[in-house]
Design a protein around this nucleic acid. Sequence first.
DNA 1: CTGAAAGCGCTTACAG
DNA 2: CTGAAAGCGCTTACAG
Lengths: 337, 337
Amino acid sequence: MTGIVDVAARAGVSVATVSRALRGLPGVSPATRAAVQAVATELGYVPSPSAAGLPTGRTGAVGVVSPVARGWYFSAVAEGAQEAFSAAGYDVLRYGLADVETQRRRVVDTHLLRKRVDALVVLSLPLMPDEVTALVAMQRPVVAIGPVMPGIPTVRIDDVEVGRMAAEHLVRLGHRRIGFIGGDPDDHLGFPVAPDRQRGYAEVLRAAGVEPDPALTVAGRFVAEAGVEAYAEFKRRGPLPTAVMAVSDEIAMGFVHAARQDGVRVPDDVSVMGVDDHDLAWLFGLTTVAQPVREEGRIAAAYLLDRLRGRDADHAEIMTLPTRLIVRTTTAAPAAR
Amino acid sequence: MTGIVDVAARAGVSVATVSRALRGLPGVSPATRAAVQAVATELGYVPSPSAAGLPTGRTGAVGVVSPVARGWYFSAVAEGAQEAFSAAGYDVLRYGLADVETQRRRVVDTHLLRKRVDALVVLSLPLMPDEVTALVAMQRPVVAIGPVMPGIPTVRIDDVEVGRMAAEHLVRLGHRRIGFIGGDPDDHLGFPVAPDRQRGYAEVLRAAGVEPDPALTVAGRFVAEAGVEAYAEFKRRGPLPTAVMAVSDEIAMGFVHAARQDGVRVPDDVSVMGVDDHDLAWLFGLTTVAQPVREEGRIAAAYLLDRLRGRDADHAEIMTLPTRLIVRTTTAAPAAR
DNA sequence: CTGAAAGCGCTTACAG
DNA sequence: CTGAAAGCGCTTACAG
């Protein structure tokens, strides 16, 4: 395995010069630099991250911590971040906090991460103040995606606005009995996404003179199965609303599927919409409020890369990305009575 | 940042003893080991992978190399591998070979990987013999998922059998004009998945006395959009086949969508099936040949972990995982003429 | 512009 | 069972 000494020997210079030449540091004559680079290429020399990391304390890797390491949203955001980090020469480490048996909080292991990554993306993890403190004490650039936490810059979308946009669309179509699906009853992390979207939804309903009806709200996790269950739950409770907004496209897809299975037509009998613009949402003709998922990862990465390069300022503490309504074929005006 | 010397000082032993005690090496008295562990926990000590890696040459990380770092299949396989590696304390590094402008081959950078990972998963990359040689020369355990390459153990499914299972299902339903979608015309890597599945499909057709019709074969990449395009292409060519097998669920979903958009009923007018059992396939009622995607990642990881622990033998060179037919609602007997 | 040398935090023969 | 010391492959003041 060719090391820096091999390159130095072959180029007839010291290892210090090789180190400087290859990293683009100043104080190396153009001729020397070119010669060293040529030799390095010829020998296929690649510096050892372990060896380079010891004296500098840098690992050349960035961590992405999320509640779980699976699911469409997490994958897509991580992909966006990965692409940006890879282009900058950083490795990306994904850490999914394993599910806990009890209701005990999952914890970000700062001790572990401290020595493994140069920077950290905290994805969809609403942290407690003491966890934020521990993260800041890590002395590594940190950025959050999703929940806003004081002390950590955040890339986000406006979830209240998302709720408004969805409800607005439905109200404008003429709907008044509008169901809402989302909000995990088992969530003990205080995940604010569903509640925020629900707030926007409620706001718009009230503005339209409709008091949000608890009987039209069904809880559910961010998976398609929750949409199926929600459909069943709505049926149990009585006549279906004329329209339903789900907090995610996957939930909406599940609902559409369950409705059709049951002989209920979408959008003729019930309008359905989601949030995300999931990669496959168009296959369902799903109306949705799109969020720029991969862009969220990319922006977070760009922020961190800036920080790693020593540039600090000129970044807003909170970077809010735009969302937009995409009308497809699962929503329509309510059927005339 | 607490280091090994801090632990040694606090425990009143040498760093050598701390090192041995914490890693479970023999030659440490139970009392000493317990004391050291207690101090390490108290101080929140975590060994630096960089420092540990220098003398040993081990990085504590495993690489997963795939053509691209996105897409459902790659994500799901990587998730399966990630879960197994994480549980064993390894970090996972994903490398997506960037698309190349020209038709030039993408290359696995063994120089780079050599110093970054202890082992490698080669995912869906049919390598040339010289690349296999370079990989073996890396002196690191390597396992492939997908294409079989001499010299590298492989976790795979039987793609010819997959084609057979799908075609068999369609033939048994009574179909004779059966379309096939898949096979990337732009593929210059010799990716064998689609061709193998097509071979199995052709075999079954011939056994049923039907000569496979080139007019019923349409190329396409592994994305839903290809299914939409394939539908259009079939229409251009004349009357639709009575059934279609796509090489992936996403393609099949795209086809179903395009057909329905066009007023063609599935399965009444045309039966459609895919391969994978995509996470969302059930939402389409999609009939499919399921492959254990996450299991593929898990098995590959388990193999590598065994190798990293020094256990070599008792592994088959080729580990073929089972596939199975899942009949849902997109396939049915052809309509009576 | 270049080099000699110390040092990063571990692991591992080698002694005892 | 335990410790002193060399060494892993780089980076970085410090000299020149």
